[in-house]
Design a protein around this nucleic acid. Sequence first.
DNA 1: CCCTGATTCGC
DNA 2: GCGAATCAGG
Length: 183
Amino acid sequence: MTWTDERVELLKKLWTDGLSASQIATELGGVTRNAVIGKVHRLSLSGRAKPAAAPVARARKPAATTSNGRQMPAASRPQPTMQRPLVAGNTALKPLVQPMAEPRRMLRATGGDDVVVPISLHATILTLTEQTCKWPIGDPNSEDFHFCGQRSNSGIPYCEYHSRIAYQPVNDRRRERKLVVGA
DNA sequence: CCCTGATTCGC
DNA sequence: GCGAATCAGG
């Protein structure tokens, strides 16, 4: 993938909007979060709103050699200054995607299994990753719409509970259960 | 373990 | 310039 003007612009927008590098990478497609971060640095738009933040000097690896046989010219490495960083990292000011706190609900299946439905984490489309439950909750047309957001096993789009609903065995004859889903 | 951004350096 | 590897940290 190449960094076209459009992609760079989108990157800038999403980054300043406070999205994480991995989220931006997903949004852009064809790039990893490392690529995004690298580009962000090259564009010099790293510190997302941290006017007076002291630069954080990071010492990397003490090791002198890597598997490639790289040698670190330790003498030429920039030395840490005496400055005491006020804050490390810029994650703190990252704007919350969800301003509204929703009362959490517990739902139960009504079939008698007495299975507890996971608490909704109010995940949005941008919050979802490879291993967050993508079970939709609520009316997609509503502001309140969100996803389950529970951790799911690798490669499985739903959490344990919602997998059961999603992948009900077809052979279980007359096992129909009216399930209260969504909110 | 999942995630976050930061950094280095071979390409 | 690019981004994988690797780091430190939550």
